[in-house]
């Protein structure tokens, strides 16, 4: 493709237009935009920030990002749908990721996925109808020594079995207060255990 982004130059950032909705979360995006001097090659970084702030990438957000970086809409949409990390639909209140890396696979993580899918009538990659649980699989979280691994609302749980996984998810759904509003998705940053 002939269209290219340009390499980063350290020019003075120009101020970002204030988003008309007044939603303060847009200022987080603006900060990243400024940090990268509105360079088009920062698209992926900006999308990361947008998803962290809003939980998912709505059409509105994609349009905002496209306009700020002066990129075609289809380009931004193409990039947002190319990478696993970005999600264009709202996530559930609780987030359960089952690692399906080779080590976990060898230790039969597929059975855990099957058990959860059956128990909550949801296929991996989707959210339950009531919006309470998003179930997904990951391509190796790099905790192979602890296989099979489950990440439940950001906490890494080692050496799970189908039974223990069901119990943990049940507990998590019961314990957490049902406040109705979806919490910000963890953006797959599953190991925010530190600090």
């Amino acid at each position: 493709m002939s269209v290219k982004t340009s390499p980063p130059s350290r020019t003075r950032p120009r101020p970002a237009a204030e988003h008309p909705s007044g939603d303060p979360r847009f200022s987080l995006i603006d900060r990243t935009l400024k940090r990268f001097s509105f360079q088009q090659d920062a698209l992926i970084e900006v999308l990361h920030t947008a998803q962290e702030a809003f939980g998912f990438l709505s059409d509105d957000l994609l349009i905002y990002v496209a306009h700020q970086l002066k990129l075609p809409l289809s380009w931004v949409y193409g990039v947002a749908t190319f990478y696993h990390f970005f999600t264009l639909t709202p996530q559930g209140e609780h987030n359960c990721i089952v690692c399906m890396g080779t080590a976990c696979y060898v230790k039969r993580a597929a059975e855990i996925v099957a058990a959860l899918q059956q128990a909550y009538s949801v296929t991996a990659g989707e959210t339950t109808r009531d919006g309470r649980l998003s179930l997904s699989t990951a391509r190796c979280l790099g905790s192979c020594g602890l296989a099979p691994v489950l990440v439940l609302d950001g906490a890494v749980l080692p050496r799970e079995t189908p039974e223990s996984a069901l119990e943990r998810v049940r507990q998590q759904l019961m314990n957490a207060t049902h406040n109705g509003a979806p919490q910000p998705a963890t953006n797959g940053h599953a190991f925010e255990g530190e600090e």
Binding site: V3, L62, P72, S74, G78, F82
Partner: peptide, 26 residues
Amino acid sequence: CDEIEGAHVWDVMGRGANSRVIIDLN
């Protein structure tokens, strides 16, 4: 559309066998 017309209306979304050509925001 990108190189001759200069509009870049089209692009590809998704990946692998799920790739589709799209218009603007799909």
